[in-house]
Protein backbone atom coordinates (compact mmCIF):
# COMPACT_ATOMS: atom_id res chain seq x y z
CA UNK A 1 0.00 0.00 0.00
CA UNK A 2 1.25 3.42 -0.84
CA UNK A 3 0.09 6.30 1.28
CA UNK A 4 -0.69 9.54 -0.44
CA UNK A 5 0.71 12.63 1.22
CA UNK A 6 -2.43 14.36 2.49
CA UNK A 7 -0.69 17.67 2.98
CA UNK A 8 0.56 18.06 -0.56
CA UNK A 9 -2.90 17.09 -1.77
CA UNK A 10 -4.40 19.86 0.27
CA UNK A 11 -2.04 22.38 -1.33
CA UNK A 12 -3.08 21.16 -4.77
CA UNK A 13 -6.74 21.51 -3.87
CA UNK A 14 -6.10 25.04 -2.65
CA UNK A 15 -4.35 26.07 -5.86
CA UNK A 16 -7.05 24.47 -7.98
CA UNK A 17 -9.85 26.13 -6.00
CA UNK A 18 -8.12 29.51 -6.20
CA UNK A 19 -7.81 29.25 -9.99
CA UNK A 20 -11.36 28.00 -10.52
CA UNK A 21 -12.90 30.75 -8.40
CA UNK A 22 -10.85 33.39 -10.18
CA UNK A 23 -11.62 32.02 -13.65
CA UNK A 24 -15.32 31.88 -12.87
CA UNK A 25 -15.58 35.44 -11.61
CA UNK A 26 -13.21 36.89 -14.21
CA UNK A 27 -15.19 35.27 -16.99
CA UNK A 28 -18.45 36.46 -15.48
CA UNK A 29 -17.13 40.02 -15.24
CA UNK A 30 -15.62 40.06 -18.68
CA UNK A 31 -18.72 38.78 -20.42
CA UNK A 32 -21.04 40.67 -18.08
CA UNK A 33 -22.87 37.45 -17.32
CA UNK A 34 -22.65 38.19 -13.63
CA UNK A 35 -25.13 40.80 -12.43
CA UNK A 36 -23.57 44.21 -11.75
CA UNK A 37 -24.32 43.96 -8.04
CA UNK A 38 -22.52 40.64 -7.82
CA UNK A 39 -19.49 42.05 -9.61
CA UNK A 40 -19.29 44.85 -7.07
CA UNK A 41 -19.76 42.45 -4.19
CA UNK A 42 -16.98 40.20 -5.48
CA UNK A 43 -14.50 43.01 -4.84
CA UNK A 44 -16.06 43.73 -1.48
CA UNK A 45 -15.71 40.05 -0.63
CA UNK A 46 -11.97 40.32 -1.32
CA UNK A 47 -11.26 42.90 1.33
CA UNK A 48 -13.73 41.31 3.72
CA UNK A 49 -11.87 38.01 3.46
CA UNK A 50 -8.59 39.80 4.19
CA UNK A 51 -10.19 41.55 7.19
CA UNK A 52 -11.70 38.33 8.51
CA UNK A 53 -8.44 36.40 8.17
CA UNK A 54 -6.39 39.09 9.87
CA UNK A 55 -8.84 39.33 12.78
CA UNK A 56 -9.05 35.56 12.94
CA UNK A 57 -5.36 35.50 13.80
CA UNK A 58 -6.01 37.80 16.78
CA UNK A 59 -9.36 36.47 18.00
CA UNK A 60 -9.39 32.89 16.81
CA UNK A 61 -5.78 31.89 17.40
CA UNK A 62 -4.36 34.27 20.01
CA UNK A 63 -7.73 34.28 21.76
CA UNK A 64 -7.87 38.00 22.51
CA UNK A 65 -11.10 39.77 21.72
CA UNK A 66 -10.19 42.83 19.66
CA UNK A 67 -13.01 45.23 18.85
CA UNK A 68 -10.85 47.85 17.15
CA UNK A 69 -10.08 46.20 13.85
CA UNK A 70 -11.82 48.99 11.93
CA UNK A 71 -9.17 51.33 13.32
CA UNK A 72 -6.36 49.45 11.55
CA UNK A 73 -8.57 49.21 8.48
CA UNK A 74 -8.88 53.02 8.54
CA UNK A 75 -5.17 53.64 9.14
CA UNK A 76 -4.30 51.57 6.09
CA UNK A 77 -7.02 53.07 3.92
CA UNK A 78 -6.10 56.68 4.64
CA UNK A 79 -2.32 56.36 4.51
CA UNK A 80 -2.36 54.23 1.35
CA UNK A 81 -4.89 56.41 -0.43
CA UNK A 82 -3.18 59.69 0.48
CA UNK A 83 -0.01 58.27 -1.05
CA UNK A 84 -1.91 57.18 -4.12
CA UNK A 85 -3.53 60.57 -4.66
CA UNK A 86 -0.19 62.40 -4.45
CA UNK A 87 1.82 60.06 -6.61
CA UNK A 88 2.40 60.05 -10.36
CA UNK A 89 3.56 56.49 -10.82
CA UNK A 90 1.72 54.10 -13.14
CA UNK A 91 -1.52 53.15 -11.44
CA UNK A 92 -0.71 49.45 -10.99
CA UNK A 93 2.59 50.16 -9.28
CA UNK A 94 0.95 52.93 -7.31
CA UNK A 95 -1.70 50.54 -6.04
CA UNK A 96 0.81 47.93 -4.93
CA UNK A 97 2.98 50.54 -3.22
CA UNK A 98 -0.10 52.06 -1.58
CA UNK A 99 -1.04 48.62 -0.25
CA UNK A 100 2.42 48.18 1.23
CA UNK A 101 2.42 51.67 2.73
CA UNK A 102 -1.11 51.25 4.10
CA UNK A 103 -0.21 47.88 5.56
CA UNK A 104 2.97 49.21 7.13
CA UNK A 105 1.29 52.25 8.71
CA UNK A 106 -1.48 50.04 10.10
CA UNK A 107 1.14 47.57 11.36
CA UNK A 108 2.92 50.39 13.19
CA UNK A 109 -0.44 51.28 14.72
CA UNK A 110 -0.97 47.66 15.71
CA UNK A 111 2.49 47.53 17.23
CA UNK A 112 1.99 50.69 19.29
CA UNK A 113 -1.47 49.76 20.50
CA UNK A 114 -0.57 46.19 21.40
CA UNK A 115 2.57 47.33 23.25
CA UNK A 116 0.41 49.55 25.42
CA UNK A 117 -2.17 46.90 26.34
CA UNK A 118 0.13 44.03 27.25
CA UNK A 119 -1.16 43.77 30.79
CA UNK A 120 -4.80 43.60 29.76
CA UNK A 121 -6.81 40.48 29.08
CA UNK A 122 -10.31 39.49 28.13
CA UNK A 123 -13.06 42.07 28.53
CA UNK A 124 -10.66 44.85 29.49
CA UNK A 125 -8.61 44.32 26.36
CA UNK A 126 -11.80 44.29 24.29
CA UNK A 127 -12.94 47.63 25.73
CA UNK A 128 -9.56 49.28 25.25
CA UNK A 129 -9.23 48.10 21.64
CA UNK A 130 -12.75 49.39 21.00
CA UNK A 131 -11.65 52.76 22.37
CA UNK A 132 -8.47 52.78 20.28
CA UNK A 133 -10.50 52.12 17.15
CA UNK A 134 -12.70 55.10 17.92
CA UNK A 135 -9.70 57.28 18.80
CA UNK A 136 -8.14 56.58 15.41
CA UNK A 137 -11.40 57.53 13.71
CA UNK A 138 -11.70 60.74 15.76
CA UNK A 139 -8.15 61.72 14.82
CA UNK A 140 -8.93 61.21 11.16
CA UNK A 141 -11.91 63.54 11.61
CA UNK A 142 -9.82 66.43 12.91
CA UNK A 143 -6.57 66.37 10.97
CA UNK A 144 -6.73 68.32 7.70
CA UNK A 145 -4.79 65.96 5.43
CA UNK A 146 -7.55 63.32 5.60
CA UNK A 147 -10.34 65.65 4.57
CA UNK A 148 -11.97 65.32 7.98
CA UNK A 149 -15.64 64.42 8.19
CA UNK A 150 -16.12 65.52 4.58
CA UNK A 151 -14.13 62.49 3.48
CA UNK A 152 -11.20 61.91 1.16
CA UNK A 153 -12.10 61.98 -2.52
CA UNK A 154 -10.27 61.64 -5.78
CA UNK A 155 -8.65 58.32 -5.03
CA UNK A 156 -7.53 56.92 -8.37
CA UNK A 157 -9.23 53.83 -9.71
CA UNK A 158 -7.39 50.85 -11.15
CA UNK A 159 -9.61 51.00 -14.21
CA UNK A 160 -12.04 48.24 -15.00
CA UNK A 161 -13.78 46.18 -12.34
CA UNK A 162 -11.97 43.10 -13.57
CA UNK A 163 -8.61 44.75 -13.02
CA UNK A 164 -9.55 45.87 -9.52
CA UNK A 165 -10.79 42.40 -8.75
CA UNK A 166 -7.64 40.76 -10.08
CA UNK A 167 -5.33 42.92 -7.97
CA UNK A 168 -7.49 42.45 -4.88
CA UNK A 169 -7.65 38.72 -5.48
CA UNK A 170 -3.87 38.45 -5.58
CA UNK A 171 -3.72 40.15 -2.19
CA UNK A 172 -6.35 37.75 -0.86
CA UNK A 173 -4.26 34.77 -1.94
CA UNK A 174 -1.12 36.30 -0.42
CA UNK A 175 -2.98 36.93 2.85
CA UNK A 176 -4.24 33.36 2.98
CA UNK A 177 -0.75 31.99 2.34
CA UNK A 178 1.01 34.18 4.88
CA UNK A 179 -1.53 33.63 7.66
CA UNK A 180 -1.79 29.91 7.02
CA UNK A 181 2.01 29.59 7.03
CA UNK A 182 2.20 31.42 10.34
CA UNK A 183 -0.55 29.32 11.88
CA UNK A 184 0.92 26.04 10.66
CA UNK A 185 4.31 26.60 12.22
CA UNK A 186 6.00 26.62 15.59
CA UNK A 187 4.91 30.25 15.96
CA UNK A 188 1.32 29.31 15.27
CA UNK A 189 1.47 26.60 17.88
CA UNK A 190 2.91 29.07 20.38
CA UNK A 191 0.10 31.53 19.61
CA UNK A 192 -2.57 28.84 19.98
CA UNK A 193 -1.02 27.64 23.23
CA UNK A 194 -1.45 31.14 24.67
CA UNK A 195 -5.14 30.97 23.79
CA UNK A 196 -5.58 27.56 25.38
CA UNK A 197 -3.69 28.22 28.60
CA UNK A 198 -1.57 31.30 29.08
CA UNK A 199 -0.08 30.23 32.42
CA UNK A 200 1.04 26.87 31.04
CA UNK A 201 2.41 28.55 27.91
CA UNK A 202 4.58 30.82 30.06
CA UNK A 203 5.76 27.88 32.14
CA UNK A 204 7.25 26.24 29.06
CA UNK A 205 8.97 29.39 27.89
CA UNK A 206 6.50 31.00 25.49
CA UNK A 207 6.90 34.76 25.61
CA UNK A 208 3.27 35.90 25.75
CA UNK A 209 3.94 39.62 25.43
CA UNK A 210 6.16 39.21 22.40
CA UNK A 211 3.55 37.09 20.63
CA UNK A 212 0.73 39.48 21.47
CA UNK A 213 2.69 42.27 19.80
CA UNK A 214 3.61 40.12 16.80
CA UNK A 215 0.05 38.93 16.24
CA UNK A 216 -1.46 42.40 16.52
CA UNK A 217 1.18 43.78 14.16
CA UNK A 218 0.62 41.14 11.50
CA UNK A 219 -3.17 41.37 11.89
CA UNK A 220 -3.10 45.16 11.56
CA UNK A 221 -0.83 44.94 8.51
CA UNK A 222 -3.39 42.94 6.55
CA UNK A 223 -6.29 45.05 7.79
CA UNK A 224 -4.38 48.03 6.38
CA UNK A 225 -4.06 46.35 2.99
CA UNK A 226 -7.80 45.70 3.04
CA UNK A 227 -8.30 49.42 3.64
CA UNK A 228 -6.23 50.34 0.59
CA UNK A 229 -8.31 47.98 -1.57
CA UNK A 230 -11.49 49.58 -0.27
CA UNK A 231 -10.20 53.06 -1.08
CA UNK A 232 -9.16 52.27 -4.63
CA UNK A 233 -12.40 50.54 -5.29
CA UNK A 234 -14.95 53.10 -4.03
CA UNK A 235 -12.60 56.05 -4.74
CA UNK A 236 -13.93 57.98 -1.78
CA UNK A 237 -13.52 57.21 1.91
CA UNK A 238 -14.90 58.91 4.99
CA UNK A 239 -14.62 58.23 8.72
CA UNK A 240 -18.10 56.68 8.71
CA UNK A 241 -16.68 53.77 6.67
CA UNK A 242 -14.70 52.74 9.71
CA UNK A 243 -17.00 53.03 12.69
CA UNK A 244 -17.21 50.38 15.32
CA UNK A 245 -20.07 48.58 13.56
CA UNK A 246 -17.47 47.57 10.99
CA UNK A 247 -15.33 46.03 13.73
CA UNK A 248 -18.32 44.10 14.94
CA UNK A 249 -19.14 42.92 11.43
CA UNK A 250 -15.59 41.59 10.97
CA UNK A 251 -15.88 39.88 14.32
CA UNK A 252 -19.15 38.28 13.23
CA UNK A 253 -17.33 36.79 10.24
CA UNK A 254 -14.62 35.30 12.46
CA UNK A 255 -17.09 33.88 14.96
CA UNK A 256 -19.42 32.54 12.29
CA UNK A 257 -16.51 30.85 10.55
CA UNK A 258 -15.61 29.11 13.78
CA UNK A 259 -12.82 30.49 15.97
CA UNK A 260 -9.43 29.31 14.86
CA UNK A 261 -10.67 28.04 11.52
CA UNK A 262 -9.20 29.87 8.54
CA UNK A 263 -11.32 28.25 5.85
CA UNK A 264 -14.40 28.94 7.95
CA UNK A 265 -13.48 32.62 8.23
CA UNK A 266 -13.07 32.86 4.46
CA UNK A 267 -16.44 31.26 3.79
CA UNK A 268 -18.17 33.35 6.46
CA UNK A 269 -16.67 36.55 5.05
CA UNK A 270 -17.96 35.73 1.56
CA UNK A 271 -21.39 34.73 2.85
CA UNK A 272 -21.74 37.87 4.96
CA UNK A 273 -20.73 40.01 1.99
CA UNK A 274 -23.45 38.53 -0.18
CA UNK A 275 -26.08 38.06 2.52
CA UNK A 276 -27.52 41.60 2.46
CA UNK A 277 -27.98 41.29 -1.30
CA UNK A 278 -29.66 37.91 -1.06
CA UNK A 279 -31.87 39.06 1.79
CA UNK A 280 -32.59 42.45 0.27
CA UNK A 281 -36.30 42.05 1.01
CA UNK A 282 -35.55 41.51 4.69
CA UNK A 283 -33.17 44.43 5.01
CA UNK A 284 -34.51 45.53 8.37
CA UNK A 285 -33.92 42.10 9.84
CA UNK A 286 -30.25 41.87 8.83
CA UNK A 287 -28.87 42.53 12.30
CA UNK A 288 -31.43 40.22 13.82
CA UNK A 289 -30.26 37.45 11.53
CA UNK A 290 -26.61 38.12 12.49
CA UNK A 291 -27.50 37.87 16.15
CA UNK A 292 -29.43 34.65 15.66
CA UNK A 293 -26.62 33.18 13.59
CA UNK A 294 -24.09 34.08 16.29
CA UNK A 295 -26.18 32.48 19.02
CA UNK A 296 -26.63 29.39 16.89
CA UNK A 297 -22.88 29.18 16.22
CA UNK A 298 -22.11 29.53 19.91
CA UNK A 299 -24.48 26.72 20.75
CA UNK A 300 -23.29 24.60 17.86
CA UNK A 301 -19.61 24.93 18.67
CA UNK A 302 -20.12 24.12 22.36
CA UNK A 303 -22.77 21.43 22.31
CA UNK A 304 -21.21 18.00 22.95
CA UNK A 305 -23.72 16.31 20.68
CA UNK A 306 -22.85 18.48 17.70
CA UNK A 307 -19.13 18.26 18.39
CA UNK A 308 -19.42 14.50 18.49
CA UNK A 309 -21.31 14.52 15.22
CA UNK A 310 -18.60 16.65 13.63
CA UNK A 311 -15.80 14.38 14.83
CA UNK A 312 -17.58 11.34 13.46
CA UNK A 313 -18.32 13.03 10.16
CA UNK A 314 -14.69 14.01 9.83
CA UNK A 315 -13.50 10.48 10.55
CA UNK A 316 -15.87 9.12 7.95
CA UNK A 317 -14.69 11.67 5.40
CA UNK A 318 -11.05 10.81 6.13
CA UNK A 319 -11.83 7.11 5.69
CA UNK A 320 -13.54 7.76 2.39
CA UNK A 321 -10.68 9.94 1.25
CA UNK A 322 -8.17 7.24 2.04
CA UNK A 323 -10.20 4.66 0.18
CA UNK A 324 -10.38 6.86 -2.88
CA UNK A 325 -6.77 7.95 -2.99
CA UNK A 326 -4.89 4.92 -1.74
CA UNK A 327 -3.75 2.60 -4.44
CA UNK A 328 -2.34 -0.85 -4.14
CA UNK A 329 1.23 -1.04 -5.26
CA UNK A 330 1.61 -3.41 -8.12
Amino acid sequence: MKRINLKSHRNLIFVAAAIVVYAFIAYGMNSNLLPRATQTLAIKACYNVILALSLSLIVGFLGELSLGHAGFFALGAYSGCIFSINSNLPIELRFVLAALIGGTVAAIGGFLISSSILRLQGDYLAIVTLAFGEIIRSFIKIIPVTGGTAGLGGIPSLGSKLKTFTFSYVFVILTILVIRNIVASSHGRAITSIRDNAIAAESIGINIKLYKIKVFTVGAFFAGIAGVILGHYINFIEPANFNYNVSIEILVMVVLGGMGNLLGSIIAAVVITFLPEILRGFDQYRLLIYALALIFMMLASNSPRIINFRVKAREKAAGLYKKLFTRKEE
Binding site: S186, R189, A190, S193, R195, D196, I199, A200, G205, I206
Partner: peptide
Protein backbone atom coordinates in the same frame (compact mmCIF):
# COMPACT_ATOMS: atom_id res chain seq x y z
CA UNK B 1 -3.12 22.71 32.36
CA UNK B 2 -2.80 21.22 28.91
CA UNK B 3 -3.44 23.02 25.64
CA UNK B 4 -6.78 21.28 25.39
CA UNK B 5 -7.75 22.14 21.85
CA UNK B 6 -4.40 21.20 20.38
CA UNK B 7 -3.33 17.71 19.38
CA UNK B 8 -1.20 15.62 21.72
CA UNK B 9 1.91 15.95 19.58
CA UNK B 10 1.43 19.71 19.20
CA UNK B 11 1.37 20.03 22.99
CA UNK B 12 4.85 18.54 23.09
CA UNK B 13 6.00 20.57 20.09
CA UNK B 14 5.11 23.80 21.88
CA UNK B 15 7.51 22.64 24.57
CA UNK B 16 10.21 22.33 21.89
CA UNK B 17 9.53 25.85 20.63
CA UNK B 18 12.64 27.40 22.17
CA UNK B 19 14.89 24.49 21.26
CA UNK B 20 14.37 24.41 17.51
CA UNK B 21 14.02 27.96 16.40
CA UNK B 22 13.22 29.64 13.15
Amino acid sequence: RLFKNMSVIDNVKVGLHNKHKY
